[in-house]
Lab assay of single mutants.
Amino acid sequence: MDVCVRLALWLLWGLLLHQGQSLSHSHSEKATGTSSGANSEESTAAEFCRIDKPLCHSEDEKLSFEAVRNIHKLMDDDANGDVDVEESDEFLREDLNYHDPTVKHSTFHGEDKLISVEDLWKAWKSSEVYNWTVDEVVQWLITYVELPQYEETFRKLQLSGHAMPRLAVTNTTMTGTVLKMTDRSHRQKLQLKALDTVLFGPPLLTRHNHLKDFMLVVSIVIGVGGCWFAYIQNRYSKEHMKKMMKDLEGLHRAEQSLHDLQERLHKAQEEHRTVEVEKVHLEKKLRDEINLAKQEAQRLKELREGTENERSRQKYAEEELEQVREALRKAEKELESHSSWYAPEALQKWLQLTHEVEVQYYNIKKQNAEKQLLVAKEGAEKIKKKRNTLFGTFHVAHSSSLDDVDHKILTAKQALSEVTAALRERLHRWQQIEILCGFQIVNNPGIHSLVAALNIDPSWMGSTRPNPAHFIMTDDVDDMDEEIVSPLSMQSPSLQSSVRQRLTEPQHGLGS
């Protein structure tokens, strides 16, 4: 029994001894940790006062410096006190997940390849973020970090730009207890964004957000305005092209109309020559008939004078003969009235020469109109080809070629109108001259024959008349068809009918 009691006491004593040793060891460790923490804080404070003595007594600045020092320690893998190029590049790629850190790398180092804690602190103090207000930090939280649900907490804590380094380091107390961020992804996102802002300055999105919006609005307005302008120009170009094509079609119709007119003019001239020949034959025939009538009257007179026994018949025959003579005298007077005045042959040749010289100047004017028309046609064809290209319509709308071609078409039409008026006036004037003179002027042997017949020096006439060419005029020349008939041919039928009527009546009387 005593043995059992003793054994229990030994065990209890051993447990108490072991517990005492454990408590003693724990207290010694706590004392050691407290001592090392105090030494670390003293070291940080001493270093901060050495680097930035004016701010070393500010608790907030001291906390920010400690956060900057921890960031530098995080980047300094070899713990030599300086962050070199390789260490910063590795940190950007692995910790901040930048696949192309060239720009960030140059911004961080600049011309200094080794970055110490002092360099990093001075860079942070010179950053724009260091002077941010609470509102600017909240704006950064909303737009860049995209965590607007913590806006009220940031405003309540009055977190300005000075506190940004403390957000950039992993601090459970700061993010969990103070900021009350329960979501781990939110804490990590805030820490990475803050670290990027401390090292490289304010984000471009935050700094140029309004400018970007303004430029976007301006670009949209310019784009819409450009599209509207292109649409208006395209519609104007199509309308202008439609008008130009309509004018061009009018020129083609006028060309065909003048071609038909020239054919009718040539045909009328041929008919005029035929009528002139018929007139000469008719006059000769009338003279022959008059002579035959005179001979017949003389023969009847002689027969009736030789027959004294038939006085009654003779008297009747003499009366008939007197009627025939009276008819012959009237026919002769009618014929003489139409051919009583004949212009000198020299006057006819001079008038024919005048007509040919006028035709020369008319042909020159006509050729100029043809050239203008050809230029207008070529310009229209070029515009047609340009319209078939990809940007042809837009190019035509913004060039002056369309207006130039339109002006050329209008100029050609005006020139053709002048040529039309000149042709109309010339035909009418020479027709009236032919009526008054009674001989042909338009139809003549040609300028060379006339110059030779009148003994004129050929050098006075200049160049010879160009051959009539096919040219274009407007449709108002169609009503000239009825005026192209020679006035002499219009007189011939009346002359034929009057003479024939007077010759036929006596012959019928003789026949009876």
Rank of each mutant, 00 (worst) to 15 (best):
G81W: 12
L63T: 07
R93C: 14
F65R: 07
S64F: 10
D76M: 15
D82P: 09
K73N: 00
D78H: 09
Y98Q: 13
H72N: 03
E90W: 01
V83G: 09
E66D: 05
K73V: 05
D76R: 15
A79V: 06
N80T: 03
G81D: 11
V85H: 12
V85Q: 01
V68C: 11
F65N: 01
F65Q: 13
L96F: 05
V68D: 02
A67T: 04
R69H: 06
D95L: 12
Y98W: 03
N80E: 10
E87L: 14
Y98S: 02
D82S: 12
D82T: 13
Y98T: 07
D84E: 08
V85D: 04
S64Q: 15
Y98R: 05
K73D: 04
M75C: 11
S64W: 00
Y98L: 01
N80F: 11
H72L: 04
S64R: 01
A79H: 05
H72C: 11
L63N: 00
R93L: 10
D84S: 06
D95C: 06
D89A: 05
H72K: 13
L63P: 00
V68F: 13
F91R: 15
L74G: 05
D77Q: 09
V85W: 04
D84P: 15
N97I: 01
L96I: 08
M75P: 12
F91D: 14
L63H: 00
S88D: 11
E90I: 02
Y98P: 13
E66R: 08
I71C: 08
E86C: 10
L96D: 06
I71W: 12
G81M: 13
V68M: 14
D77C: 06
A79M: 04
S88I: 06
E86L: 02
K73F: 03
D76K: 12
F91S: 09
A67E: 02
E66Y: 13
D77V: 04
E66S: 05
D77E: 04
K73P: 10
E94V: 01
D95E: 03
M75A: 10
D82G: 04
E86R: 06
L74E: 04
V85T: 03
E66L: 04
A67I: 13
N70K: 06
D95V: 03
R93H: 12
K73R: 07
K73T: 00
K73G: 06
V83C: 15
F91C: 15
A79Q: 08
D77P: 10
D77W: 07
D82I: 11
A79R: 04
D76I: 15
G81I: 13
L96T: 15
F91A: 13
S88Y: 04
L63G: 00
D84K: 09
D78W: 15
V83E: 14
N97D: 00
V68R: 03
L96K: 15
D89M: 06
D95A: 07
E87V: 09
D78Q: 14
D84Q: 15
D78S: 15
D82K: 15
N97Q: 00
E87I: 09
L74S: 04
E86F: 11
M75Q: 02
D76T: 15
D84L: 11
Y98D: 08
E86S: 12
N80H: 12
D89I: 01
K73H: 07
E87T: 12
S64T: 00
R69L: 12
N97M: 08
A79T: 05
I71E: 03
D95F: 08
L96M: 02
D89H: 03
N80S: 03
E66W: 06
A67F: 12
R69M: 02
N80V: 10
S64I: 06
G81H: 15
D82M: 10
D77F: 05
